[in-house]
């Protein structure tokens, strides 16, 4: 198909995206930063918000938690994706089911179920106490540990599916060839399988990180008082203190970082390869 025709087919999607997403976003930024407040104060506003202790701490927390989540999701997701890429039939369906089904459950429900498990009087602490392994409950909830667990659970499917797609694209003949040439299992993994799934690892890590830095519900519900992420600051400014220019500055910042990461993602994830044209 000619390129301009495919573009034409995308037109309704672009139009919809423009109307329901881009236009309101532009309206919000223009209104809050240029109309409601004095544009000449914009620089001061930017500095005041971005350099505030709360924002700086939130940026550090956001990056740190996103990094922890990305690493955890990768370490958990890689073996699962590997298993899926090498299985068929019932076991494949079962694991896919387990990975995908939570994806269709409300994120709030999923987060609450973790709270039931991890709480002071939750199942895990109760079981440990019944086994006399601990006397006082372990602090499993309302800290970064629980945030990472909750977010990992939510984001795992993105990583697994991205890695699975990459692993399915690996030519099995290459692995046979490596074996035929005398390579041991670990060497095949390190020198052939891992490098060939690398673009999946990078894409998966980027997509998980991008989603992580905008996370709101899970850290708000499962985090402790000081675990404040940027998205939570924005929500608070919009809904509670009604400081919309401040929220706009923070949103603009978060949006820029996200778009920047997407640009990297776009470059790393050879789109043509995803389309299967290479």
């Amino acid at each position: 198909m000619k390129p301009h025709r495919t573009t034409l087919l995308m037109l309704p999607a672009f139009a919809m995206l423009g109307c329901i997403f881009l236009a309101p976003l532009a309206w919000f930024f223009v209104h809050t930063l240029l109309i409601d407040s004095d544009p000449s104060d914009l620089r001061d506003q930017l500095v005041a918000v971005l350099a505030s202790r709360a924002m700086l701490r939130a940026i550090v927390t956001t990056n740190w938690i996103s990094l922890l989540v990305t690493v955890t999701v990768l370490l958990l997701g890689y073996p699962i994706a590997y298993y899926l890429a090498n299985r068929r039939g019932f076991r494949f369906t079962l694991v896919v089911f387990c990975v995908i089904v939570p994806y269709f459950t409300s994120i709030i429900v999923r987060t609450y179920s973790w709270m039931v498990l991890l709480g002071r009087e939750g199942l895990i602490n109760q079981a440990l106490r019944d086994l006399h392994l601990i006397s006082d409950p372990l602090p499993l909830l309302y800290n970064q540990f629980s945030i990472v667990i909750g977010m990992t659970y939510v984001l795992l499917p993105y990583m697994v599916l991205t890695l699975f797609a990459a692993m399915k694209g690996i030519d099995r003949n290459l692995l046979l060839a490596a074996r035929g040439m005398g390579a041991s299992g670990p060497m095949i993994f390190r020198r052939v399988y891992l490098p060939l799934s690398r673009h999946g690892v990078i894409s998966g890590a980027l997509i998980v990180f991008i989603l992580s830095i905008g996370f709101f519900i899970t850290p708000a519900l499962m985090g402790g008082p000081s675990d404040v992420m940027v998205a939570m600051l924005i929500e608070r400014s919009v809904e509670i203190t009604l400081d919309w220019p401040g929220a706009a500055v923070m949103s603009l910042f978060l949006l820029s970082v996200t778009l920047l990461l997407y640009a990297v993602y776009y470059r790393v994830t050879d789109v043509r390869r995803l389309m299967g044209t290479v």
């Binding site: 003949n173 290459l174 046979l176 060839a177 005398g182 041991s184 060497m187």
Partner: peptide, 30 residues
């Protein structure tokens, strides 16, 4: 991997992430 036989595959099975030198070096590194 312990038979020590050379093999040429139907569609070559060249490692796309390694250059020609490293492809040829692979059995020696193994």
């Amino acid at each position: 991997q312990r038979r020590g036989l050379g093999m040429v595959f139907q569609n070559y099975a060249i490692f796309p992430h390694l250059n020609v030198f490293e492809n040829v070096a692979f059995p020696l590194r193994a």
